[in-house]
Design a protein around this nucleic acid. Structure first.
Ligand SMILES: [Mn+2]
Ligand SMILES: [Mn+2]
Ligand SMILES: [Mn+2]
Ligand SMILES: [Mn+2]
Lengths: 141, 141
DNA sequence: GGGGAAATAAAGCAATGGCTACGCCTAGCA
DNA sequence: TGCTAGGCGTAGCCATTGCTTTATTTCCCC
C-alpha cells in the first residue's frame, strides 16, 4: 500500500508525463515544493515498489501498475476538488483540504462521491436548492 | 494547532466525560487501542497546550478551550459519518474513512458538508434521486 | 498497614520523509 | 573534443509522531 506522500509523488509524476511527456526530478521537486534529493529518494522507493522503472540520470517510466494508479490518483484529486466546489467551499481552502483527505478515502467512498457529483451535474437546479438551504440556515443566525 | 492524534484523544476524552462523567486513562487507552502509557504522555501534552488540566493520579478536567474543541470534534466526526452514510458508503468503510479525513478538512468544508446533509434531510426524495443516479450509472456498465 | 490495580516515568524504537553537503554525470557550448 | 554548469544522486543527519517496554509510584480498599 502506498503512503500519502508516495501517492502525492505518483500523482504529480503522472500529471507531468501526461502534460509534458516526461517527468524530470526538478519538475517534480518544484511541483511538490521539496528538494530534488527528496525526489530521488522517493523515486527509488517507487521503483522498488514497481510503480515505475528508474534509471539514474536517464529518467523514469511508469509501469502499467504505476500508470493505472497515477491515473486514478489524478482523477480522484480532480473529483474531490469538484465535490468541494459544488458544495460551496471557498476556493482558497479547496486545494489544501483535498491534498489532505484524498489519501484517506476508500474507493467505495470515492465512487459514492462521484455519484453525488453526477447527481448535481445532471440537474443544476439541485445546486440552486442546496444554495437555498445554505441561505436559510444562515438567515437563522 | 492540534495534530491528528491529539484530536483523536481529545475527541475520545470528551465523549467519555459526556457519557460517563469522567475519563480514566484505561478507558481512553482501550477506546483508542493504545497502551496506557501512551495515554499518559498525550494527556501531558494536552495539558501543556491547555486543553485540559491534569493532576497525576487524580484525573483530568477539560478546560473551556478543551471542552469547546472536544465538542466540535465529536460533532464533526458524527457529521462525517452521517454524510458518508447518506451518500451510500458501505457501513464497514465508514468509520475508518472518517477517522482519516476528519483531521484534514477546514471548518469551511465542514460547514458546507453540514449544509449538504441538511439538504438531504429536508427532503428524503432527494436521497431517492441520488440512489436513482447510482442505479443508472451502474446499469451503464 | 499491606496487596494489587492503575497510573506514570524513562528510555528507546520505528517509520516517515525532509534537508544539507558534497560528489558524480552529461549535454551542450567553446 | 574537452570543459563546465547545472542537474542528479548519495550519505548522513534530523525532526516529528506516536508507539512500546520496563520499572516504579501511587492510590484505594480490605
Ligand atoms: Mn495529497
Ligand atoms: Mn493531490
Ligand atoms: Mn481520527
Ligand atoms: Mn474521530
Amino acid at each position: 500500500m502506498a503512503t500519502p506522500s508516495m501517492e502525492d509523488y505518483l500523482e504529480r509524476i503522472y500529471k507531468l508525463i501526461d502534460e509534458k511527456g516526461y517527468a524530470r526530478v526538478s519538475d517534480i521537486a518544484e511541483g511538490l515544493e521539496v528538494h530534488p534529493s527528496s525526489v530521488t529518494k522517493m523515486i527509488q522507493k517507487l521503483d522498488k515498489d514497481n510503480y515505475l522503472i528508474y534509471e539514474k540520470y536517464r529518467g523514469l517510466m511508469l509501469t502499467p501498475k504505476g500508470k493505472k494508479m497515477g491515473k486514478r490518483l489524478v482523477e480522484r484529486h480532480q473529483l474531490l476538488e469538484n465535490f468541494l466546489t459544488i458544495i460551496g467551499v471557498q476556493e482558497d481552502n479547496i486545494y489544501k483540504d483535498v491534498e489532505g483527505i484524498e489519501h484517506h478515502l476508500s474507493w467505495d467512498s470515492i465512487t459514492c462521491i462521484e455519484t453525488l457529483v453526477e447527481y448535481f451535474r445532471r440537474d443544476p437546479g439541485r445546486t440552486d436548492e442546496l444554495l437555498n438551504v445554505r441561505k436559510e440556515i444562515e438567515a437563522d443566525n
